[in-house]
Amino acid sequence: AQASVVANQLIPINTRLTLVMMRSEVVTPVGIPAEDIPALVSMQVNRAVPLGTTLMPDMVKGYA
């Protein structure tokens, strides 16, 4: 199954992502693919992302 990017902590709005904030997990619905984690580093989220939330393309500025 495809692993997705999941928030490893609460990520406040406009925060630049770092590796420690993200983990890969097989979840439904599928979000951003886990292999994109390196590309997500330093991108900003456009909303607060609670712990355990799957990151979707529309949550990350410049990803989609």
Rank of each mutant, 00 (worst) to 15 (best):
A1V: 13
Q2K: 07
Q2L: 13
Q2A: 10
A3T: 07
V5N: 02
V5S: 04
V6P: 01
V6F: 02
A7E: 01
A7C: 03
N8D: 12
N8V: 12
N8A: 15
Q9C: 05
Q9G: 07
Q9T: 14
Q9I: 13
Q9P: 02
Q9N: 08
Q9L: 15
L10N: 15
I11D: 01
I11K: 00
I11A: 00
P12R: 07
P12N: 09
I13N: 08
I13K: 15
I13Q: 12
I13G: 13
N14M: 15
N14D: 15
N14E: 10
N14Q: 12
T15G: 06
T15K: 06
R16H: 14
R16A: 15
R16I: 10
R16G: 11
R16K: 07
R16D: 04
L17Y: 01
L17V: 03
L17E: 01
L17K: 00
L17A: 00
L17H: 00
L17W: 02
T18G: 04
T18R: 10
T18L: 06
L19A: 07
L19W: 13
V20A: 14
V20W: 15
V20T: 13
V20I: 09
V20D: 07
M21F: 06
M21E: 00
M22Q: 00
M22A: 01
M22V: 11
R23I: 06
R23C: 04
R23W: 03
S24W: 09
S24H: 10
S24V: 11
S24C: 05
E25M: 06
V26G: 04
V26M: 08
V27T: 12
V27F: 02
T28I: 12
T28W: 05
T28F: 10
T28Y: 11
P29Q: 07
P29T: 06
P29D: 05
P29K: 07
V30N: 10
V30M: 13
V30K: 06
G31T: 01
G31Y: 01
G31H: 01
G31I: 02
G31N: 01
I32W: 03
I32E: 01
A34W: 08
A34K: 07
E35W: 08
E35P: 07
D36S: 14
I37D: 00
I37K: 09
P38L: 10
P38G: 13
P38M: 14
P38I: 14
A39W: 14
A39T: 15
A39D: 05
A39S: 10
A39C: 05
L40P: 00
L40T: 01
L40H: 00
M43N: 05
M43K: 14
M43W: 09
Q44D: 05
V45H: 00
V45P: 02
V45Q: 00
N46Q: 08
N46M: 15
R47A: 13
R47H: 07
R47K: 11
R47V: 10
A48I: 13
A48W: 08
A48E: 14
V49K: 00
V49S: 02
V49Y: 01
P50D: 10
P50R: 11
L51P: 13
L51S: 12
G52V: 02
G52C: 04
G52P: 00
T53D: 10
T53S: 13
T53M: 15
T54L: 04
T54V: 09
L55T: 01
L55H: 00
M56T: 12
P57E: 06
P57R: 13
P57N: 05
P57I: 05
P57G: 09
P57W: 10
D58Q: 12
D58H: 09
M59I: 05
M59E: 03
M59N: 08
M59R: 03
V60F: 06
K61H: 13
G62E: 09
G62V: 06
G62S: 07
G62Y: 06
G62H: 08
G62R: 07
Y63G: 04
Y63R: 03
Y63A: 04
